[in-house]
Each structure stands twice: as structure tokens, then as C-alpha cells.
Design a protein around this nucleic acid. Sequence first.
DNA 1: AGCACGCCGACT
DNA 2: GTCGGCGTGCTC
Length: 817
Amino acid sequence: MEIDRSLFAEIIIPLALPKNYTWAIPEHYREVVQPGIRVEVMLGGRKKYAGIIKKIFAEKPEAFNPRDIINVLDQEPILHAEQLKFWEWMAGYYMCSEGEVMQAAVPANLKLSSESILIWNEERSINFSDLSDNEYIVAEALELKKELRISEVQNLLDVTHVYPVVKKLIEKEVCYVWEELKEKYTEKKQTYIELAPAYRNEDQLAELLNNWSKAPKQMELLLAFLHLLKTEGTVIQPELLKKAGASVAQLKGLIDKGILIAEKRSTDRIQLGDQNSNISFTLSPAQEKALAAVQQVFQTKQVCLLHGVTASGKTQVYTQLIQEQLDKGDQVLYMLPEIALTAQMIRRLQEYFGGQIAIYHSKFNANERVEIWNKVKTGEIKIVLGARSALFLPFKKLSLIIADEEHDNSYKQQDPAPRYHARDAAIYYGSLFQAKVLLGSATPSIESYYNCEQDKFGLVRLTERFGDAKLPRIELVDVKKYQQKVKIAFTEPLLEAIRLSLEQQKQVILFQNRRGYAPYQICNTCGWIPECQNCDVTLTYHKFKNKLTCHYCGTHYPVIHTCAACGSHDFTQKNFGTEQIEELLNEYFPDAKIARMDYDSVKGKNDHDALIKLFEQRRLDILVGTQMVVKGLDFEHVNLVGIIDADGILGFTDFRVNEKAFQLMEQVSGRAGRKDDLGRVLIQVSNALHPVLSFVQNHDYDALYRYEMINRKEFGYPPFTRIIQLIFKHKEKHIAEEAANIMMGGLSPHFPKDISGPAQPVIDRIRNQYLWELLIKLPKDMQRISQCKQMIMQQAAILHANKRYSAVRIIVNVDPL
DNA sequence: AGCACGCCGACT
DNA sequence: GTCGGCGTGCTC
């Protein structure tokens, strides 16, 4: 028998396949393949993908005949072994495929796209008599060039639909389709302008300038160049020409004279700039103590929670820790929730670390992301400041991960799989590198605090605000005292407080957690409330757009004037959104400069930064906003924060109400007051006895924690358990419900006490799909959890084998919080 | 994710 | 009679 020396590779391709597929490695690629290298593979009839080799083995699979790899795309792996391990863990833990993890992890440009190409069929006898005019044109071009892209065919023809023509040509065997995998990543080349070596010393340059006689325009240009060189370090052609208002010809004059040189080279889009500007700063004694305590914790524990009140200067502690890693030559990942990644924050860190820091989040363009990817891989980039997606960067020698604002829900990816929690995943990822993980928050999540109590994480507190600043005074205003029948937005005490602040030339932040103008409207005759057709959510009136909007799915509706239930035309608008609050403020304070910050008013990221800048520079007096005003912003001159409607915050339907309400109110109030002025926080509320309010008033996180622990124990929710949420989706309500309950039946013999059933309808219906939910609450027992996951997969397979339920989509969400 | 295969409504 | 809708299933 012939000895089979063939090799095979398990390859991850960016698809939601139930498992990884295997391809054969042809003889001539044997020497160059290794895990982490991308290869081009064929899947199905004509589709090609760039997949990543996970592992290489010699045993031929029995069940199928692997196809050959077509091509090897890299000379060296695009990631390290740690990342592949991390993907595997994530797929297992969050119950998704490794392909889905790859989708989330790898920048689009490292995944490849296929572009169809038409190839001239040499075998066909050249007889064009049976072709139409358009077909003839294309066929002729094909005969000449042998191949054409679809896009080129488009240019050739004067019709909008090229596909029918192409289809006919293929049928008539004039050509066939080939597909080319094309690397989308193109290096950006730019023309750099530099001084010619002869003029690089001061004397030579001075002499040149002093003896300048002709061409004043060129002189001007040269001076502009020197200025840019001094301020920016490097000079690129378009910037120089723009700044000097000069033409290419004038620049060419200087180059021809041998004074300047132009060089085209690929730029690094991320400006790594100069090293460490090292603005020195000193830690306060409290910060010093906290830093030492964190270091102490890291001696014995991998994870440390830094519980520091707002404006206690956690960032300075981080900075110090980051510096330590840099001194060791290691890398650091600093994660922030997307919303807190503001220009203000970035600027502050760049001041400390100069060009060594790279910013990374999903809104970056693809080329930039690839560059950062590569530089993190080689270790050239030491610090990455990024949102949750930065966790997937191919770090080489990571020694510290910071997850700031650890409690923030946006660390959890909800929609496309992998439904991962970046804070939790960071702890596993860190463990692969023996890296330490620092969680920071002024209002820690209950589960993290619980982990501290269980001695799993270390806990360090920072209870003093930086620079002697005091915590603001928090006052409750009982709205019931000030309003008659109709709900009002502003009580007299709040108006008075705003007036006072404006008189003192101070700034005011008003917080209202509802966008739009009026959150809902109600028919005065029968009480009918307009709702979204998809989501069963009340529609919010937006005055500016003059539309009703569903804040859940984003659908717009024309304004409704006629009641759908009784035909009455008499509607009342209830409650206040930020839009209306802003309008009311303009009436109350016509002279104040007022701005609104919410999802509708800040479209792009730049609008957001611009607004913050305006406020920072005190060009605005009052800022009205939703949650957006809360995150990671420090303003020097705010001495009043008003919470318009605390009832709205305390009345969420979520079981985490209290935790969320505390977080929101605590974070907003943190915006008030600085060293010279402790500031005021006014909370308008009708239920002034709500316990959370007293926790907020006393800034007493521990009291909230104890209160929540009792609540959670009653409901059997985390942190005592691991939760797996199963969502069943189907067009027909009862089929989704039945499927959910059958799953429950299948699971309950094995996990009798863990499942909360029967299935519950999920709050909303999205895109005509009905959603039913099952919750499984498991003790933190590794074996039991993996047993349960296996059982879920098994039951799902059984369910799908039944024709009736084969179209039920099952979404598995592990730790759905 | 594609894409082919396959089974029921409005048209040259 | 067909063209074409999108529901279901498979891809190493």
C-alpha cells in the first residue's frame, strides 16, 4: 500500500458553519503553511473564502473527501496562537461558531472578497451570428482581451442591466465565470516633502534664505514648509500646498533647485509620532495609596476592581500602571465603552503617551484597522485605547488590560453572534498572557462587586475626589408638591437653581432619559395609545421631524390625528422628551445659550465632540441630554445638575432597575461640583421614598449592593448563577411558543430546578417574528454548564428535525446581561 | 453567508 | 403553458 503523506488543515472561514471544515494541503504548499496563515479555499460551487488555518494534521477524514487549498495568502501568520485559543474559548463559552468569532475579530480587509471575472471560452467556434447586439459587443471585447470584469462589461454597454446579457453569453458558451480573490487592503501612499540633505543644517539654510533673490512665491512656500516641519514633524504635499496656497509648479521649482525633495512612500495612517511627551504629574496621596494597593492585589490575583468615586482620578492611576508595562516593554489594552471614547478622553491620554497610543474601534475605516492590526501583532504599538472590538487585536505580549466603566452594558455585544461580554472575555484573554486585568468604575456592576466579596477579584477603593473636590449635595424635589393635575417638567426649585447658576456664570447639565418631544400620546376619549406595528412599543412624537418614531426599531410613522380605536381626534401628549425640555428652557431662559445632546442632535461622532468642546469652552450655558451627557466627561464649571424625571429612571421594566438607576443618577451627579464649589444636584421625583434615592443621596454604593443582593436572592438571578437565555423566533406566534416549551420539556429532566418556564414572550416583536424566551439559571459549576450547553445543542437538533419547527430560529445568549 | 433546488401564483 | 417568488438545505 502506498504511504499517504498528505496533510490536512482545519480552517476557520468567516461563516456561521456549525463546525470548522477541513481542506487538503497540496504538496507544494506543505512547507509554507502553519496555523494562523490565511488560505484561499473553495466552498460550494463557486464561492471562495479566505480562511485561517487553525490546525494541521495528517489523518485523512473518513466522512468526506477534502478539497485542495487553492492558494496561500500570507507568508507569516496574521495572528498569534493566543488569539486562536481565545476564539476557540469564545465560540465555546458564548455558544457560537469560530467563524462568527472571526467575523467579529478580523478587519474586513483581511477577509477577502471575490469579484467575478468573465473568461473567454477558447474552445467555442467563433460564430457570432446567434448573438444579440449587446452580446456581440461583449463577445468581441472578450475575444480581444480574453477576460473582462463585470464592472468592465458595465462600462461597455449602455444598459442598466448587464446580468441578463452576461447570463446569455454564458449560456451560449461564449465565456465562463472565474472568480478572483482580491486583497482589499491597499497601502495608502503619500508624497512626503523633505529638505534636501544639503540644507539640513542651520547655517546652510540661513545662507540660502538670506541670499534669496528671485521667486518670492517659492520663498513663501519654503517658509510655510519650514513652519510645518517645525510644528508637525513631517510634511505631506497636499497639506503644504493648502497651507501655503501654492501650486504644484511652485513646489516643483523648489525641488528642481535641489532645495526640497519629494518622496512617495506608504504612510502609516496612525501617526506614531514622537515618543512619550511625558508630561509629568504627581499622584495625590490617595491615588498613590490606591496604586500601591492595586499592585499589591496583582501579586496574588489576576483581576482587581478599582472602585473610585467620580472624578477621583482613576485615569491617573491607570496611566501610572500603563507606564510600568511600557517600561517592561509589554503591551496594554485600555478598553472603554464606545460612548465614552470621546475626543476629550483620547486627548488626555495622548498628552501622557504621545504617539505610542493607538485608538481602535469599529467605526474606524478598514485600512486603518488593518494597519493597527499589523502593528499590534508585531508589538510596535504598545497601547491600544479602544472599544470592545479592540479585544480581538493580535497582541503579542500583553501584560495589562484595563476595562474602564466596567459596569457599562455596552461591553456586551447583543446582536450579531458572538454575543460576548468584553469585560468577561478580557479576563479569559488576559489569562492567556498571564496579563492582569483592572476593572474600574464609580458604580461597579453587582456581579463584579460580588466577585470581590467572594475573594475572586481584589478590591481597591478610591473614595476621595481628586484635588480636594467634594461630592455634590443632592436634593430631592417632590414634584407632587408643585404640580396640579398635569405633569410638569420644571418645578420652581429647579428653575430657581438654574437661574442662580446662570447668574453665577456657571454651567448647568439637565438630564432627561427620553429622546424626542413627547414619549407618548393618548386618546382623550378612549385611552388608546399609538404603538409601533412591529414592536408593541409606544411611539414618541418628534416635533422637529414631525413624525412619530419607534425608539426600539427606528420606524417612522406620520403623525396620527385620528384614534384607531374610537375615531376621536382628541389626543393629549404625555411626558417630556429632551426636545421639549430644550424648547421649554428657551422659553424660561431666553438669554441663555442652550444645547441638546442626544441621539437625534448628534448624528456623527464629530458633532458629539464639537458639542462637548463648545460646552468646555463655556460657549454654552445649559446642556440638555440623555445618557450621552453622562459618560466620561469632566467639565470644570458645572455647578448644577438637574434630573428632570427620576420616576422615569426608577421605573424601568428591567429587573436591574435599581442598579441601573443608581448608576445613572450617580454618574450624572458626578458631573456637578469641583474644588471651589461643591455644586448641587436636584432630582425631581414623585416617589421620594424610593430606597435607591437615599443611596444616591449618600453616595452609598454598599447600601445599594446589599439591597440588590437581597432582591436578587429572591428572584434567583445573578451573581449567584450563570444565565443562558434562549430565544425562539418564528413568524407564527404559537409555533415559536411551542418550540420554546418543547425545549423546556427536553431540558427539564436533566436540569429540573434551573429552568424558568413556561416560555415567556419577549417584550417586543421584531420584523414580524415572534420571540419567546426561556431562561436557564445554572450554578457556577463548569461541568454542569458545559453539560447544559451540550444538551441545548442536542435538543435544538431534535427540534429542528421536526418539520413543524425546522424554521424556528434559536438564539442562545450566555450571560445575557 | 451564498446559492441551488423546488414548489405555488400572475403573466407573454 | 412559463417566469419568478422565497422557503429549505448544503457547503470540507
